[in-house]
Amino acid sequence: MILNKLQLGLQLLLLLGIVAAIAYVAICLFLFVRQPHYIFFPSHVIEKTPEFFNLSYEDVYLPVLTRSGKVEHIHGWWIKSNQPNTRVLLYLHGNGINIGANISHANRFYQLGFSVLLIDYRGYGRSEGVFPNEKRVYQDAATAWNYLVQQRQISPSQIFLYGHSLGGAIAIDLAVKVPEAAGLIVESSFTCIQELIAYRNLFRVFPVDLILTQRFASIKKLSQLKIPVLFIHGTVDSTVPSFMSQKLYAVAPEPKTLILVPGAEHNNVAVVANMEYLQWVKAFIQQVHIRRLSNII
């Protein structure tokens, strides 16, 4: 009888082990398929437009060809500067909401004399398409670049790339592909998704490296960068720690600049820094200008 109970107990343990293993594999498969939903948080509701700042702007819809041959359109705002220069900023926002949540910061660059193009990746705002993923947002950023160069006839040497948080990773990917761009500004961004997951102590019981498809491995790409780069990060950023910008800075080629903003969080760097933020960007623009002149001479 004791032997029968022991056998029954072992069989129960074996059954529980099998159930647990199946559940573990099922969760891994779920994370493999659904992981973009843990990275991207789009909204279709645009709560603020450039009109909020009395800015004249143009709605643009840029065609993107999908693998299936279907054409989808990404939406953006073209805000042309009224100042006599052709300097342009391609603004790539982070993983949340849409361009409507970024118009206030875009206005800062406009006040510095930039014409600004803000785009929403597919699945965000008024842009078409299914839920975003890493490959799609890279393609969307490249589409915006091509629009500026080919349709707007803007010289690549006059186009600066700006990316915040996840947008920083997208901007880095694009900057490596377009070495003729003027410069790159990366704000509050990370080294790679894998390190960010490890830092936050998320999904530690799962084989993250095996199931991760959305990598955004900026730190592996930066060695190929051919243009000046400015990194900005708040020192008390609880979303993306500032040491990640320090790591990005360490591997980026010269010319490069790193500015750490005391007391600034993930989304309020420019607010905390106030006028200093504009001075940093101005200084970076001047650095790029001097570099271009020296190359011509």
Rank of each mutant, 00 (worst) to 15 (best):
I39L: 12
I79M: 00
A198G: 06
V240P: 04
A144Y: 10
I185W: 03
P84Q: 10
V71H: 03
H75G: 04
V281T: 01
D140R: 03
L230V: 12
F109H: 05
F284N: 06
S43V: 05
A171W: 00
K256F: 07
R291Q: 15
T143A: 09
Q194Y: 14
K221Y: 11
V33K: 13
S104V: 11
T143S: 09
G123D: 06
H37G: 02
V71R: 07
Q151G: 07
I46K: 01
P228A: 13
K282H: 08
R34C: 10
K135M: 13
G113A: 08
V186F: 06
L210A: 15
T239C: 12
I296S: 14
Y124M: 06
F160C: 08
Q150A: 13
Y277T: 01
P36Q: 01
I18M: 15
N95C: 02
Y249M: 03
I296T: 14
A182K: 04
L293G: 00
S68K: 07
S157R: 07
F231C: 09
W77S: 04
L15I: 04
R215L: 05
Y91D: 01
F190I: 03
G183E: 06
A182F: 03
K226S: 15
K5F: 06
G168Y: 00
L248I: 04
V130I: 11
G123F: 12
N295C: 09
E58V: 03
R152I: 02
L210R: 09
G125D: 08
L29F: 12
L29Q: 06
N295A: 15
S189R: 00
N295W: 08
Q11M: 12
H105Q: 15
P207R: 11
T86C: 07
H44V: 02
I99V: 14
T213D: 14
S245E: 01
Q279L: 14
V116D: 04
N107W: 09
N98C: 08
Q224H: 07
S245L: 05
P262R: 13
V178L: 12
N95Y: 03
V60G: 06
N98G: 06
V33W: 09
I219W: 03
A283N: 15
I232T: 14
V88K: 00
H75L: 00
P50S: 02
N95T: 01
V288Y: 00
Q153F: 09
S157C: 11
S165G: 12
V205E: 09
H266V: 11
N54A: 07
N274R: 15
A144L: 05
F243P: 05
Q111V: 07
L13W: 00
Q35D: 05
N107S: 11
F41Y: 09
V240I: 11
K70I: 08
L10C: 05
L230S: 10
P262S: 12
V178W: 10
N82P: 01
M275E: 10
V25I: 06
F231N: 05
L3F: 02
F190L: 03
S68C: 04
N274V: 10
L13Q: 04
Q158E: 13
F206I: 14
Q153T: 05
E128H: 06
L258F: 04
R136Y: 09
K282T: 09
Y110F: 14
I74F: 01
R204K: 13
E47F: 10
S127V: 11
G100R: 02
Q150W: 12
Y277V: 08
P255G: 08
V176M: 13
L222H: 05
L166V: 04
